[in-house]
Design a protein around this nucleic acid. Structure first.
Length: 874
RNA sequence: GGGAUGUUAGCUCAGUUUGGUUCAGAGCACUUGCUUGACAGGCAAGGGGUCGCUGGUUCGAGUCCGGUACAUCCCACCA
């Protein structure tokens, strides 16, 4: 046998992927007679490189798509990348910095030229990496969220929503990143507990020598205060109502206002109100008509409105002002305080709440169908527990800030004239026309400098990959869109359930008036063994490409799937890949065994006939389990079903049963059966392990030009006979008992044993015996003989077995073990007897349960009998 | 602060909807014995859990109800 004892994935993976591509097996087209099955990939960042999260996510998608393809559906997996405005722009800025170029020295056009150049060079590396894991995407359909037609679609949607009144421009308190000088959505802000100080500051009351003490963690913002607020029900402060106070250091007079918003228990019960620099204060300011005083520049330094410390950074200003207040005698006390501070996800700078003109999507109304259709399971979330979180988010949805102060992205189609008036238009010409129609000046127009939030383009993804014009012109009969949409399954991480999934659903109901996909499979997060999230900074993330080089793509794929039920985080351990690789090796060696047999036209032995009948039934049973698991998106369980069917049932039992003796031939009938079983196993293995299954498929027998396993037919569901399976279970149990007896008695498996069977004469002529003899290495079976002294006895389904050991064993140890076992069964029997003696149990339990208890009793009694017999014969 | 989910073998998880033969399971890990003519990346056998804790309902609770502890996640972001 020239085949290596080990499977070498490196030899075969590239070969098959290339052939699959060449034969066009991945590409999908409209075929009205076939049922479509479609997945759109969650587009990875164009700057991305493959990490373990992608590995898990895309393996699951590939499993689903490959199975659908084999089920005869027109399987379409659409790949692509996301322009990822913030991430990509940051990468380009960093790249330019290395070349000594500052973004601020470039014009927008120059910068974008660099960005595109960079994208052409490095963008899409990740798509090449996906091919290594076997991803069977229809690469002809590869889409990018800034393709020309996609760009237009995004602009069309903006204009359309603006006309419908869903998009507005407004002054709002937003999350400002002073380092990136951009607005961030709420979701791009991470909150962390930070140890800080709580300053108690005295504000002098106007026309009095008394003062009011407030507590704040941000003393540098007192110059922006426009009121002090007390709770009207606060008994301590009734005398302050209607008075005014002076801001320390700058002596500006501000009113004392009343609002129940103030918590009396916190701090002193007096709150300084700074509407320009705090979200809650902003709301309070609006309610009480307070002035807005913004004392910060874009970069977080103080501006001239602060009057003092102008130009200082906010954190330096905080230290300095604390000192000034101290010197001025305004500090009452300072406490240590732990507060929750927001940080930019991108730059990690402390977020500054800031008032700014931004564009928003009004969410309340537009989200309605998206909420309803998830809650009523039109769109299924898997696992369903995410419905709760989804519901909670959607019911409390806030308007979506969609403008970003960046250059890389879809530029907002808004135009301003010299007077600062604004129109939304696709081009400057259209803008001019609109201004004129409004009787407004239309000279020296300027386009909005901002681009749109990345999610404002990716929420169109499932539609736009098929047709970008649909947002402007409606559906003009694009057959791809009509055929593949709504898509079937979406596989993504729960982290982006709101960012992306919810918004795709919203867009789909808005523009297609239907769902975008039927099922959303939410994967877990890949963590390391200690449960930490994998991250670059921790260096705990293995490189999937290196893993695949080491264990094979099939090994890594199955390794990841072994322990990753939907919604559960995956604690990644390289051992899993090893298990995957070992499985591939097992399959490989099973092939080597079968392939090495010589056939002859001899009569099929009875034991082989039984073995084949059994395995066929067992396989059909497993197939039913498999289909059930897939129907419930239990991918790990599905894999485990295949794993055990192949390893235990096929290799350990079936092949051992039919294995011919060394150098002897196997009968043709059994051999053909074995090959066809092997084929069906390779088929159900294929979605999980595409490469080795394709390799062995071709090794197993000659194939025609287009006969590949990737397009082979998924084995149809077949009935199975539980009677056959039960009979086999009986044989297996007997064999296990025999082996156990050998093990416990230190008898080599090579030494043939004799056996006696009592009270089951029907076994005499059965093919069972042949199998028991073969796998148990039993040389002779006698019937209804008195047990010889020193026998080991056991009972299986009321049949008594006896193995004479002729003094080959240590009687003392044997006796002890037997006594222990007898004791256990006696205890069990007592419990059952007690139950049966309980009148109330006998009266209220259903008859089946009582019958079962009675059977337990007789079984236990038989077992004890047999054991006692063994004991007495020792 | 509000909400959700989870706690079952050393580890990762099934099982809880509909209480009683899938009821105490799986894979990995572990122990013992095997140079077994496919595979030591292997074979065979085995050990291991009072189902977080605590009350209750019931003839009977991993499963239903109350309480409690711990963990994780989501939302909000009280100066």
């Amino acid at each position: 046998m020239s085949l290596s004892t080990k499977y070498n994935p490196g030899d075969v993976e590239g070969k098959w992927y290339k052939q699959w591509l060449e034969k066009g097996f991945f590409s999908a087209t409209v075929k009205p007679q076939k049922e479509p099955y479609c997945i759109v990939i969650p587009p990875p960042n164009v700057t991305g490189v493959l990490h373990m999260g992608h590995m898990l996510n895309n393996t699951i998608q590939d499993v689903l798509i490959r199975r659908a393809r084999m089920l005869g559906k027109e399987a379409c997996w659409v790949p692509g990348t996301d322009h990822a405005s913030i991430a990509t722009e940051a990468r380009v800025v960093a790249m330019l910095r290395e070349k000594g170029i500052k973004k601020s020295d470039l014009t927008r056009e120059q910068f974008l030229e660099y960005a595109w150049e960079w994208k052409e060079k490095y963008g899409g590396i990740i798509l090449e990496q996906l091919k290594k894991l076997g991803a069977s995407c229809d690469w002809n359909r590869t889409k990018f969220t800034m393709d020309a037609d996609y760009y237009d679609a995004v602009i069309d949607v903006f204009i359309d929503l603006y006309r419908k009144g869903y998009i507005y421009r407004g002054l709002r308190m937003i999350n400002w990143d002073p380092a990136g000088k951009t607005a961030l959505s709420d979701d791009e802000v991470n909150y962390r507990d930070v140890q800080s100080k709580l300053f108690y500051i005295n504000y002098p009351i106007e026309g009095s020598t008394e003062f009011v003490t407030i507590a704040t963690v941000r003393p540098e913002t007192i110059m922006a205060d426009t009121a002090i607020c007390i709770n009207p029900n606060d008994g301590r402060y009734q005398h302050l109502k209607g008075k005014r106070v002076l801001i320390p250091l700058i002596n500006r007079s501000i009113p004392i206002i009343e609002d129940e918003y103030v918590t009396m228990e916190f701090g002193t019960g007096c709150l300084k109100v700074t509407p320009a620099h705090d979200v809650n204060d902003y709301e309070l300011g609006k309610k009480h008509n307070l002035d807005l005083i913004d004392i910060l520049n874009e970069d977080g330094s103080l501006n001239e409105k602060a009057q003092i410390l102008v130009g200082e950074d906010r954190f330096i200003a905080r230290k300095k002002i604390a000192k000034l207040l101290e010197e001025g005698g305004y500090i009452n006390k300072v406490e240590d305080y732990k507060s929750n501070v927001g940080f930019s996800e991108r730059t990690d700078a402390v977020i500054e709440p800031r008032l700014s003109m931004q564009w928003f999507v009004r969410m309340k109304e537009i989200t309605k169908p998206a909420l309803e259709n998830v809650m009523n399971d039109t769109i299924r979330l898997i696992p369903a527990k995410f419905k709760n979180t989804y519901n909670h988010w959607m019911e409390n949805v806030r308007d979506w800030c969609i403008s970003r102060q960046l250059w890389w992205g879809h530029r907002i189609p808004a135009w301003y004239n010299e007077a600062g008036e604004c129109v939304v238009a696709r081009t400057e010409e259209e803008a001019v026309a609109q201004f004129k129609a409004n009787n407004q000046k239309a000279n020296s127009l300027k386009q909005d400098e901002d681009v749109l939030d990345t999610w404002f383009s990716s929420w169109l993804w499932p539609i736009a990959v098929f047709d970008c014009s649909v947002f402007k012109d409606g559906n003009k009969g694009n057959t791809d869109l009509n055929y593949f949409y709504p898509t079937n399954d979406l596989v993504t991480a729960p982290e982006i359930l709101f960012f992306w999934v919810a918004r795709m659903i919203i867009a789909s109901y808005e523009y297609r008036n239907t769902l975008p996909f039927k099922n959303v499979y939410l994967t877990g997060i890949v963590r390391d063994k200690q449960g930490r999230k994998m991250s670059k900074s921790l260096g705990n993330s293995p490189d999937p490409l290196e893993l695949m080089a080491k264990y094979g793509a099939d090994g890594v794929r199955t390794g990841m799937l072994f322990s990753s039920p939907a919604g559960n985080d995956l604690l990644f351990d390289e051992k899993l890949c090893e298990q995957g690789r070992n499985f591939a090796n097992k399959v490989w060696n099973a092939f080597r065994l079968v392939k090495g047999w010589n056939t002859e036209n001899i009569v099929q032995p009875v034991e082989n006939e039984l073995a084949c009948t059994w395995f066929e039934n067992r396989r059909n049973q497993a197939m039913a389990e498999l289909d059930d698991h897939f129907g419930k998106f239990r991918i790990s369980d599905a894999l485990m079903t295949v794993y055990k069917l192949i390893w235990e049932d096929f290799c350990s039992w079936y092949l051992e049963m039919i294995k011919p003796g060394f150098g002897k031939p196997i009968d043709q009938v059994t051999y053909d059966k074995a090959i066809s079983f092997f084929e069906s196993l390779l088929k159900i293995l294929h979605p999980f392990m595409p490469f080795i299954s394709e390799e062995l498929w071709h090794e197993l027998r000659p194939r025609t030009e287009r006969e590949y396993i990737i397009v082979a037919e998924w084995p149809a569901a077949m009935p199975f006979d539980t009677g056959v399976l039960n009979k086999a279970a009986f044989i297996f149990e007997a064999i296990t008992e025999i082996r156990n007896t050998r093990n416990a008695s230190n008898l080599s498996p090579k030494e043939p044993l004799k056996m006696v069977i009592n009270n089951n004469a029907s076994l005499k002529d059965s093919s069972f015996l042949a199998i028991i003899k073969k796998l148990g290495n039993i040389s002779e079976i006698q019937f209804n003989q008195p047990a010889a002294p020193g026998s080991i006895n056991f009972v299986i389904q009321s049949t008594e077995f006896s193995i004479p050991l002729n003094g080959k064993v240590d009687a003392g140890a044997q006796r002890e073990a037997l006594q222990k076992e007898i004791e256990y069964h006696r205890g069990f029997l007592t419990a059952v007897n007690k139950k049966l003696a309980n009148e109330r149990f006998m009266n209220s339990a259903p008859p089946e349960v009582i019958t079962m208890e009675k059977k337990k009793k007789t079984d236990a009694e038989a077992k004890i009998n047999a054991l006692e017999k063994s004991l007495s014969e020792l």
